[in-house]
Design a protein around this nucleic acid. Structure first.
Length: 434
RNA sequence: GGAGAGAUGGCAGAGUGGUUUAAUGCGAUCGUCUUGAAAACGAUUGUUGGUGCUGAGCCAACCGGGGGUUCGAAUCCCUCUCUCUCCGCCA
């Protein structure tokens, strides 16, 4: 959420940002609602002031019955007027709040303007895609042959975009998660295992709601089917934002650095026909997420944004995956994001790079929604800044991991960094080699 | 799932319809005293919005969230959330 005072002072900046992010929002209408709200609030407050004066007059009247009755009579009139005005004010305030929640954040000046992901800009390329002297297999074929994947039965249980990991894939996933948490926590990040269920306020704080609600699974937690109380998170980011909602932190506690793990659930609404094969886009997965809460300072945010990227790069480098980094263009940015880097790893079966990590900073956009503040050294309250980046998402990471390290016989080399987490094992080998 | 008790400022804790403008204590900040510190003493110390001669002042709201009764609610009523105690169930 942006500061309303900022929107009032810079409507054109906000309009341009919304346009570049391809968000349809009528800023003029918002300002008009804002003006009407202020006007009505003044009227309500004037009535309340009058009410307080009369209340004192009633006390002061004591046993002077006439004065007392007169003041109570006047009080009735004020109360009657407030009874009309107050619901109008509440309605306007709710409308204004809803509009405010839909105003996107301002992208950084360094973000390229573009329509969609096709206009993201590569800034870095690391490693070389492997040159196979055989036709590389895709992850579905490799994993099925290795007894690691059972798509058919996963779909039987839970429908399309579902899967069962079997055998060595389960060991591999646990190894990947532990390797990742170890690497990031060694860099000073506190491990968290957070709820995968969260209330709506956590989603609002994170800026998944109100826009984006259709991507989230709602749970009927009470008997009132129209009022789901809990939702399944699509990322631990939601839960971590919710953790500190409403708190006033102390400047000395910052920065807070977390590495959180959780199951993640996504409806993937509107992606029919996209990445339908295999493990690229699934309804349920497991993700290790980096999250930082820092002081309200642009340069500090930028510094941590780079640090989070460096952590993620260390992970894909240790897994020996060829990758590149792109700056995401305005049209592909989330509402709250100021700037975002994606790491995309090379996928041999597709002959292209695919997103595995997403590194964003928000300034105080999330903090303002979630009301996370800190008392600065000068004694003032400020909203914190928040950032997050994937550390590792599984099973998606298995696609480049297994495809890049495959051999002609269908076996797969395990990168040395991962071997300690697999009992020293150096490869996955099918029972029936090709 | 059943029964009961609670939720008040950074913390503790009074307050059961009208000078509550939320007491008191602790903490914090500043000052006095001191070589310095501690102690003692004094002062200050919440948030949000509005107004404004722009951080003097003035107005409004906030006692877990929301709604209601009343001229007037921390206080009475309804509802939701959470915490604690006991019983039941359970990995």
């Amino acid at each position: 959420m942006l500061d309303l005072a900022f929107i009032r002072a810079n409507p054109e900046v906000v309009k341009t940002a919304a346009q570049q992010k391809r968000v349809a929002i009528d800023i003029d209408h918002l300002l008009e609602v804002d003006a009407r709200t202020t006007e009505l609030r003044r009227a309500v407050e004037a009535n309340r002031a009058r009410q307080n004066q009369l209340s004192k007059a009633i006390q002061a009247a004591g046993k002077d019955k006439a004065a007392r009755e007169a003041a109570i009579g006047a009080g009735r009139e004020v109360a009657a007027e407030l009874k009309v005005l107050e619901p109008q004010l509440r309605e306007l305030e709710a409308k204004l709040q809803d509009l405010l929640l839909r105003v996107p954040n301002i992208p950084d000046a360094s973000v390229p303007v573009g329509r969609d992901e096709s206009e993201n800009v590569e800034i870095k390329r690391v490693g070389t895609p492997p040159a196979f002297d055989f036709a590389p297999r895709d992850h579905v074929e490799l994993m099925t042959r290795l007894g690691m994947l059972d798509l058919e039965r996963g779909v039987r249980v839970a429908g399309s975009r579902s899967y069962v990991l079997r055998g060595d894939a389960v060991r591999l996933e646990l190894a990947l998660l532990q390797f990742t948490i170890d690497l990031v926590s060694k860099r000073g990040f506190e491990p968290l295992e957070v709820p995968a269920l969260a209330r709506d306020f956590a989603f609002i704080g994170n800026s998944q709601f109100p826009r984006g609600r259709e991507q989230v699974y709602a749970l009927q937690h009470s008997d009132d089917a129209d009022d789901p109380e809990l939702f399944l998170v699509g990322t631990a980011e939601v839960s971590i934002t919710g953790m500190y909602s409403g708190e006033v932190l102390d400047a000395s506690q910052l920065p807070m650095k977390f590495v959180g793990v959780s199951p993640c659930f996504r409806k993937e609404a509107g992606t029919y026909g996209k990445d339908t094969r295999g493990l690229m886009r699934v309804h349920q997965f497991t993700k290790v997420e980096q999250y930082i809460i820092c002081q309200n300072d642009h340069d500090t945010s930028v510094q941590w944004h780079e640090a989070l990227l460096a952590n993620a790069e260390a992970i894909v480098q240790a897994l020996e995956l060829p990758y590149h980094v792109v700056v995401v263009c305005t049209g592909d940015l989330g509402d709250g994001q100021v700037k975002k880097y994606d790491i995309e790893c090379w996928v041999p079966s597709e002959g292209t790079y695919r997103e595995t990590h997403s590194d964003s900073y928000f300034h105080d956009y999330q903090a303002r929604r979630a009301n996370i503040r800190y008392r600065d050294h000068d004694g003032k309250l400020r909203f914190v800044h928040t950032l997050n980046n994937t550390a590792l998402a599984s099973p998606r990471i298995m696609i480049p991991l297994l495809e890049n390290h495959q051999r002609a016989d269908g076996s797969i080399a395990i990168p040395p960094a991962l071997r300690p987490y697999l009992g020293g094992q150096s490869e996955f080998r099918p029972k029936d080699p090709v």
